[in-house]
Design a protein around this nucleic acid. Structure first.
Lengths: 254, 254
DNA sequence: ACCGTGTTGTTTTTGTTGTAACAACATTTA
DNA sequence: TAAATGTTGTTACAACAAAAACAACACGGT
């Protein structure tokens, strides 16, 4: 039984995303809590069946998470978590850059299907994903950014906006702005548009124009999982562009 | 069928270490090669059974690797690999730091079993793991480093050695040294000790002393998987220390 | 009525999880 | 010294869960 309280579960979960199995996680965590142990001790400490301990330790050896001393009986010892996890992580990051390389190539010369995809409206699901997409759009903007939204949405984009502030024109419409306004950014405060009133304040809501050709709109979830829309469709862009101008008329420069 | 040749397999492998399943990888790679596609097209492109495409796309949607357009039929589009993979990676790295935190705490106050583990000799398996361990030892050295080895072993440690060069005393014994010798490092060249002659030259071989109390010896694999030994056992340390002095007598400062 | 889409089950397969049995060895006991 | 006991390391295999592969069907549009 791990002396640790509830951490056990969440840590095991974390280790699993790093590529370990449940048993591997259990054994490693158990082994961390002593300086060394025999297979049987590990079995008692971790709750993993004794017979299963051996193959598990083999795999952990390959992964450089434990070391073995060839005495009788064999003794095992955990490598310090910092080293062990960094090793795992390096492996993963390596694969990641490789995948990025190859897939990036593949993607560059993808075949352009006729019926232009620019006319479609794409959905992005999930809060984190929406923020992530907005950030990407900001970083990849060519010459102009216009963004309007509540603070819940804007606060996670400050960093990205600041970084682009020097390079391209950035206009912001917000109910308010907390902290310093970055150099090169124009902030217009105005009465809350529709999406600010809507119930829960914590929900991200707003819209982002990039280069006058792309729009992303986050609408706040109506009970469902949060969803945002992205499009380069002309009608879609024009509609929200009008809306922007309308609101902009009300606002006051800051 | 993916238009790509043999990459397909290795990329799928890489994506799996990032937490995707086989189907998820296949679908994503297929979808990358076109600007957009319906479920049926994805099925044809990827070889994944049509019925399975839907749940797979759902999961990819959650992971922000594809977007959906709610037309009839639904259209799907891959998010650019850079963004997609970074999102995956961030998730994993987050878990990793969490695990490091919690496990680091756990490890700090592990219960010290009697029969001192310092008297044991520990085995480290695998080439990468050996290098990684050597590096860790170098970074964590308190006041002195002595290292002797062939170039195959030394060349991967240059960086680590350079970093510590200013802070602590470092002595190196090598058959030769390529490139500039870092400031603060003493290199002694000498005739190749036993392990240099042994057959294959590419194999890492050598020994590392840290603070006069810890030794790690990499012996070159005799057919088996490469193995290194680590110990703080007094007899073990003394034995190799003598050996060091012996070799050192032959060498010439450089 | 027909075709393709999207959905719902069910079977097969794979890999992990869990149990049982056993040979090799060391230690104790007679 | 030899038998008895207990532990270690291995092997085989049952149980289970998740993913993969297949089959069937309701629905909407033509």
């Amino acid at each position: 039984m791990p002396t640790s309280p509830e951490y056990a579960r969440s840590v095991a979960e974390a280790l699993k995303t790093l590529g370990l199995t449940k048993y591997e996680a259990l054994v490693y965590v158990a082994l961390l809590q002593v300086t060394k142990a025999t297979a049987t001790e590990i079995h008692e400490l971790s709750g993993v069946p004794r017979a299963s301990v051996y193959p598990v330790l083999d795999r952990l050896l390959q992964k450089n998470m434990v070391t073995v001393s060839h005495t009788t009986p064999k003794r095992f010892s955990a490598t310090p978590p910092d080293n062990a996890i960094n090793t795992l992580l390096r492996e993963i990051e390596e694969k990641a850059t490789y995948a990025k390389d190859v897939l990036g190539e593949l993607w560059k010369d993808r075949t352009c299907i006729e019926g232009g995809d620019q006319e479609l409206i794409w959905n992005i699901l999930g809060d984190a994903n929406i923020t992530s997409r907005l950030r990407d759009l900001i970083y990849q903007a060519g010459n102009e950014i216009r963004i309007m939204g509540n603070w819940a949405l804007l606060k996670d984009l400050r960093e990205a906006l600041e970084e682009r502030a020097g390079e391209i024109r950035i206009d912001v419409i917000a109910e308010h702005w907390e902290g310093a306004v970055p150099e090169g950014v124009t902030v217009t405060t105005t009465v809350p548009p529709v999406w600010h009133e809507k119930g829960k304040m914590g929900e991200r809501a707003g819209m982002l124009f990039v280069d006058g050709t792309k729009v992303m709109v986050a609408m706040g979830s109506h009970g469902e999982a949060p969803t945002a829309l992205f499009s380069e469709a002309e009608g879609f862009v024009r509609f929200f562009s009008r809306y922007w101008d309308l609101i902009h008329g009300f606002g006051e420069k800051k």
